[in-house]
Computed example of a mutant assay.
Amino acid sequence: MFGMLPFDRSNDNLFDTFDNFARDFFRSSNASLPAFRTDIRELDGKYVLEAELPGFSKEDISLDVKDGILTISAEHRENREEKDERGNYLRRERRYGSFTRSFDITGIDESGITAAYQNGVLELTLPKSQPVIPEARRIAIE
């Protein structure tokens, strides 16, 4: 019909040619990389999740659990200025980074999750929840 593709525009308009070229070029570069690297190991009765977050301080990281989803967010802002004696900039740099990843934690005891951050690695201990065994009971006949 009109070449309908979700989340993409067709290249029919001459003025959009450069925009489409840039979008396609940068899409293939690193769009498939996750926000930050994580390793998940299974140990006795728990999982250990290690997330690499170099350059962030502990205060830059937030962990949220809602409806069985664990969300790890990290945000860092940095401004650095160097001026000469007259107040003119010799160098002015700004840096901003923000990352978010979410994980399904079905089967995890949410109240027992612990976290530690050291040397750029966030380590979460996720204890497995104990399976609920249905209770059997006898019903008296009257």
Rank of each mutant, 00 (worst) to 15 (best):
T114A: 05
L5I: 12
F25V: 05
R86S: 14
R94A: 10
R80L: 05
T17C: 03
K83Q: 14
D104C: 02
N119L: 10
E85P: 07
A116M: 03
N11L: 08
A74L: 14
G87H: 15
S129T: 10
L124P: 06
S57T: 13
R92N: 15
A51N: 05
D104N: 11
L70V: 04
E110T: 09
P131K: 08
L90P: 00
M4A: 05
R23P: 02
F21V: 02
V48D: 01
R9V: 12
P127G: 03
S29A: 06
I69T: 10
S111A: 11
I72H: 09
T17R: 12
A136M: 14
E93V: 13
P134G: 13
N119Y: 06
P6N: 11
N13H: 10
S62Q: 09
N13S: 12
T106R: 07
S10H: 03
Y47A: 02
S73L: 12
F21T: 01
E81Y: 11
R27G: 11
V48I: 12
R41W: 00
F2Q: 10
I139Y: 14
L14K: 00
D8Y: 15
T17L: 15
A22R: 12
F103K: 06
Y117T: 06
F103N: 02
R137Q: 13
Q130R: 09
F15V: 00
R37F: 12
D19W: 04
V48C: 04
I141K: 11
E78D: 11
K128L: 08
I69Y: 04
R27C: 11
T71M: 08
I139C: 11
F26G: 02
D12A: 10
M4V: 10
K128Q: 04
R95C: 06
S73P: 00
R95H: 15
Y96W: 02
D64K: 15
I141L: 13
G87M: 11
F99A: 07
K58N: 08
F36V: 03
D39P: 01
S10I: 05
A35N: 01
A136D: 12
T125S: 07
P134Y: 11
T100R: 12
L5P: 00
L33P: 01
D104T: 09
D60W: 15
L49R: 00
E59M: 04
Q118Y: 00
E50P: 08
P131C: 03
M4Y: 13
E50K: 07
T71D: 09
D109Y: 08
M1S: 12
T38P: 10
L126G: 00
N13R: 14
R27A: 15
F26P: 03
L14M: 01
G87P: 13
I40H: 00
R77D: 14
E52M: 10
H76S: 10
Q118H: 03
S28G: 06
G55C: 05
A116V: 03
R101T: 12
L122H: 05
